[in-house]
């Protein structure tokens, strides 16, 4: 009995010693809730080594894909709030919550920082007959509910075309293709007509394998000035996907401070800007406070969007 008590005290001491060691004293896991090779993964892959450099510990990316990105979200939410599990998020967290796909809300996490913003581009299969938006619009009006769109249902790639539907007064048909890569397979083979993509697919457009219809930014992209904006075509839709890092709710304040400063330093590295340029993505840094406000605003916006689009389930 006495031995047991000593052993237990020993364990307790070990445990507390662990707790008092300065964060971080072991590798940090960053959950990316999609299969590797998707656009979120492509953004966090080059980011992780930079974060690692500033945080002073190995940062390991864990791709936990599945179920419209909600499997990884759930795992991140349930992880111990000790700063050793982080969560790579984008706007889908709001849309999947309000469309009832997921029970995980952004309020289950502590914001750390936003790092990037990628504009959406409406993209068409090479096998479609239209040359531009006007052709697409005429066809969509002639055949309502017939033009198929590959999308991760309830997520950003569903919201973006749904906004276009609403603004232009047309109706699409949605087919579930989760993640950018499967959507590209389907659209190249002509099995769906349209999808939400981004400038990373520029190479395929130049090779004639895809058609960019319009970009959802305020101004045309310097990367491809030939692609018109939806706004100038009379469709009032501006849409981008913003990515950031969250930690489970209840993570200690000192850990959050450390994470925020490392995150900021990593996002400001020129190497990150370079790799984001290749992804046709803007570096968009926001600190904890600012990101928290932004998340709240974005959440309201997504709730309104979901309601307007008839997808609101909460």
């Amino acid at each position: 009995m006495k031995k047991l008590a000593i052993a237990l005290t020993g364990f307790a001491l070990l445990a507390t010693a662990g707790a008092f060691a300065a964060y971080p004293d072991r590798p940090v896991k960053l959950i990316v809730p999609w299969p590797a090779g998707g656009d979120t993964d492509n953004i966090f892959r080059p980011y992780a080594p930079l974060l690692q450099k500033h945080i002073g510990q190995t940062v390991v990316i864990a791709n936990v894909g599945g179920a419209s990105g909600t499997k990884g979200a759930k795992e991140a939410k349930d992880a111990p709030p000790d700063g050793y599990t982080l969560y790579a998020v984008h706007d889908y967290i709001h849309s999947t919550y309000y469309t009832g796909v997921s029970d995980v809300n952004y309020t289950d996490f502590e914001p750390i920082c936003m790092i990037s913003s990628t504009a959406s581009v409406l993209t068409a299969s090479p096998k479609t007959p239209w040359k531009d938006w006007a052709g697409l619009l005429a066809d969509a009006k002639a055949r309502p509910g017939q033009i198929s769109v590959g999308a991760t249902l309830g997520s950003t790639s569903h919201f973006f075309p749904a906004l276009i539907e609403k603004a232009a007064g047309i109706k699409f048909k949605y087919v579930s293709y989760e993640g950018l890569a499967p959507r590209m397979n389907a659209i190249l083979g002509g099995h769906t007509d349209l999808t939400d993509a981004n400038m990373t697919q520029k190479g395929k457009v130049e090779a004639g394998q895809l058609k960019f219809i319009a970009i959802a930014t305020e101004k045309r992209s310097p990367e491809m000035p030939g692609v018109p904006t939806l706004k100038e075509l009379g469709v009032n839709v501006v849409y981008d996907v913003n990515r950031g890092v969250l930690a489970p709710k209840g993570t200690p304040a000192d850990v959050l401070v450390k994470l925020e400063s490392s995150c900021a330093a990593a996002a400001k590295e020129p190497a990150f800007a370079d790799s984001m340029k290749k992804q046709a993505t803007d570096v968009r840094y926001m600190g904890r406070k600012q990101y928290a406000d932004w998340l709240k605003g974005n959440d309201d916006l997504n709730k309104t969007l979901a309601k307007d689009l008839g997808l609101l389930k909460r």
């Binding site: 364990f11 070990l14 445990a15 010693a17 662990g18 072991r26 590798p27 896991k29 190995t58 390991v60």
Partner: peptide
């Protein structure tokens, strides 16, 4: 290979 292995929640080792 930086493949993380389980850490003990009792032992923290």
């Amino acid at each position: 290979l930086s493949v993380l292995l389980p850490r003990g929640s009792w032992t923290d080792f």
